[in-house]
């Protein structure tokens, strides 16, 4: 069996960083990354991006050396992706923040609404219901992160955590401030509006959870395989007939329900911003499904049935 030689150059300076001789032909990129870390311990594998072209796409961890378009001496270009942090850590910080922040406003801790309101409770039922819904939503997300989701990528750049936390925490504080404000105005159409909103919220939460379970069952533990998700026996997953990312459809629906329930403009804005972001993600996912699977169901749209 013929061995390969691999040289790793810096993608920016073209400086030679590492030379590996006698690399097995069936070595994967992940294994090469591990070898590279031995000479450069500051760049642990998750930080490394290796590519065939200095400006090209990163090679996947599972790519095999002998299947790449290289001679017996392969030149790979290295880029440092910066400090990495695990998805689980990011998600937990992102979601624990809003849960905690919202409760600070709900209990009206001092220095928010003025001294005489400290630790008082709202006289509107909807405020208490809203607190239950908001807390439920984030507890559900936390538990899902711990026990349901399987992440195809282990890490993300460290700076993302600052960006995402500003977004989630900031919006949570802004919404909670008005919903729990002593001068809060309850919904115009009273109990009817709240009941309708609660129904939307609950259905969408159940739907979102069902989709997450369905996606989990699609990917066996420890694998990175990708399959087309199809509806299961659970009726909530039947939305897969019409959209590629029903989890986002349900998530947006939950927030619309919460906005109707609280009749609070910041919640509506948060729903809108979230919808925009999730549409971008859904379009990306939809495109990659179409690219990967020839027999992808043509009826599906990225996030809104028949529309978007």
């Amino acid at each position: 069996m013929k061995h390969y030689e691999v040289e790793i150059l810096d993608a920016k300076t073209r400086e030679k960083l590492c030379f590996l001789d006698k690399v097995e032909p069936h070595a994967t990129i992940a294994e090469i990354k591990n070898l590279f870390t031995k000479t450069h311990p500051q760049w642990y594998p998750a930080r490394q991006s290796l590519r065939l072209d200095p400006k090209g796409k990163s090679l996947k961890d599972e790519d095999v050396l002998q299947k790449l378009p290289v001679g017996t001496t392969a030149t790979l270009y290295f880029r440092d992706l910066g400090a990495q942090i695990s998805w689980v850590t990011v998600f937990l910080t992102e979601y624990a923040g809003p849960l905690f922040i919202y409760l600070l406003f709900y209990f009206r801790v001092p220095f928010i609404y003025g001294h005489k309101y400290d630790f008082t409770s709202s006289r509107h039922t909807v405020v208490h219901l809203a607190c239950i819904c908001h807390s439920f939503h984030y507890i559900k997300r936390l538990l899902e992160t711990l026990f349901v989701h399987r992440f195809s990528h282990g890490t993300m750049p460290l700076r993302n955590i600052f960006k995402n936390c500003t977004y989630y925490w900031g919006f949570a504080a802004w919404m909670a401030y008005y919903i729990n404000h002593p001068l809060y105005t309850p919904p115009t159409y009273g109990a009817q509006q709240v009941k309708l909103a609660l129904a939307i919220f609950v259905i969408c939460q159940l739907g979102n959870f069902s989709i997450h379970m369905a996606l989990r069952d699609l990917r066996p533990a420890g694998s990175k395989t990708r399959k087309i998700p199809y509806p299961t026996k659970n009726p909530f997953t039947w939305l897969f007939l019409l959209v590629s990312c029903p989890n986002y459809t349900y998530e947006v629906g939950s927030w619309i329900g919460f906005a109707i329930m609280t009749q609070c403009l910041p919640v509506a804005l948060f729903s809108l911003v979230g919808f925009t972001q999730m549409t971008i993600w859904a379009k990306g996912k939809h495109r990659s499904y179409l690219k990967e699977f020839r027999d992808y169901p043509p009826l599906r749209m990225p996030i809104i049935p028949f529309l978007l």
């Binding site: 008005y178 919903i179 809060y184 105005t185 609280t262 609070c264 403009l265 910041p266």
Partner: peptide, 9 residues
């Protein structure tokens, strides 16, 4: 100003 029916200030 609060109060208003959109619950925003």
């Amino acid at each position: 100003r609060l109060p208003n029916k959109y619950n925003v200030s």
